[in-house]
């Protein structure tokens, strides 16, 4: 994997807004931004209502994913370009779904909505609809998804990368600082996890740093790329961003996203938890 097959620039996107076979998709948790203005021709996916199972805590299964993409008019041979707010967190999460369900041509828009807006590129509030398709999803690729028992077993043996902010890692905050802090689960991190906030991988305009800068960041943090890696955050969206960096940009193998992340791990009974700025012991 490399940038050529996983990422597109805002310039490329603006030139290809009307290219047949290229589908732009805005992905957000709160789609109110899409309603006020989106890339011309872009459809939307709502992380909460479209991409999550509405009963149990899990994301959409293979059949649900196929039905969703069919209804929204995405075909198996389309090139899907994902973008969104929050520095592409939920777009990266959706990218991970597309990878998990075997979509061939999927890209992230470098810089997402933020760079697009700061560059004053075109946005429109027009309603977009595409003719339905018969999308076929593949069986989920569990080589890129980690579950809780695997995370506990990885303590001290695999790379665990906590991509939340330093204060969340240390247990001083339970959630990103733009949200009220009323969550009830325990604070802290998985023992032996290194702290590499997702934001270290991004420039302030939301674009990804260069491959060389990215390699230096993870090497300096002590990531051993000969070992398997599990990335996690709070609900799995920021760690999708880091999963994208490690596997899709830097080409690491055996990188998994733990989508249960801290809201699951920090509520498990009896598992070890570390507090403070150091990774802690097994």
């Amino acid at each position: 994997m490399s940038r050529d097959t996983t990422l597109v620039s805002a310039d490329w996107a603006e030139k290809n807004l009307e290219t047949p076979g290229v589908v732009f998709v805005e992905v957000d948790e709160d789609t109110s931004a899409y309603v006020t203005g989106h890339l011309p021709g872009a459809i939307k996916l709502d992380w909460k209502t479209d991409l999550q199972d509405q009963v149990r805590r899990d994301f959409v299964n293979k059949d649900q994913f196929a039905a969703l993409l069919s209804e929204r008019g995405i075909a198996n041979d389309d090139t899907v370009v994902l973008y969104g707010g929050n520095n592409n967190w939920f777009a990266a999460y959706a990218y991970w779904y597309f990878a998990l369900y075997g979509h061939h041509e999927v890209r992230l828009l470098d810089g997402g909505r933020k760079k697009w807006e700061l560059d004053a590129r075109p946005l429109t509030a027009e309603t977009v609809s595409r003719p339905a398709t018969q999308y076929v999803a593949q069986d989920p690729d569990h080589t890129i998804r980690a579950f809780r028992d695997e995370v506990v077993a990885a303590i001290g043996t695999k790379n665990l990368v906590d991509v939340r902010s330093p204060d969340e890692y240390a247990g001083r905050l339970l959630a990103p600082a733009h949200l009220p802090q009323e969550q009830a689960q325990r604070a802290g991190h998985v023992p032996t996890a290194i702290s590499v906030p997702w934001s270290k991988a991004a420039n302030e305009d939301g674009t990804f740093k260069s491959d060389q800068e990215l390699r230096e960041i993870y090497a300096a943090a002590g990531l051993d790329d000969s070992r398997e890696t599990i990335a996690y955050c709070r609900i799995g969206e920021r760690s999708s961003h880091t999963w994208f960096v490690l596997q899709e940009l830097l080409g690491h193998r055996n990188v998994k996203n733990y989508d249960g992340s801290w809201t699951e791990y920090g509520s498990l009974v009896g598992v070890p938890v570390a507090l403070g700025d150091e990774p802690g012991k097994e």
């Binding site: 957000d28 948790e29 709160d30 992380w47 909460k48 707010g85 929050n86 967190w89 939920f90 990103p176 733009h178 949200l179 009220p180 009323e182 969550q183 709070r234 609900i235 969206e237 920021r238």
Partner: peptide, 11 residues
């Protein structure tokens, strides 16, 4: 604020 507590979108 219920919608702001579950996820990460800025309220």
């Amino acid at each position: 604020t219920a919608s702001t507590t579950a996820g990460c979108a800025a309220p």
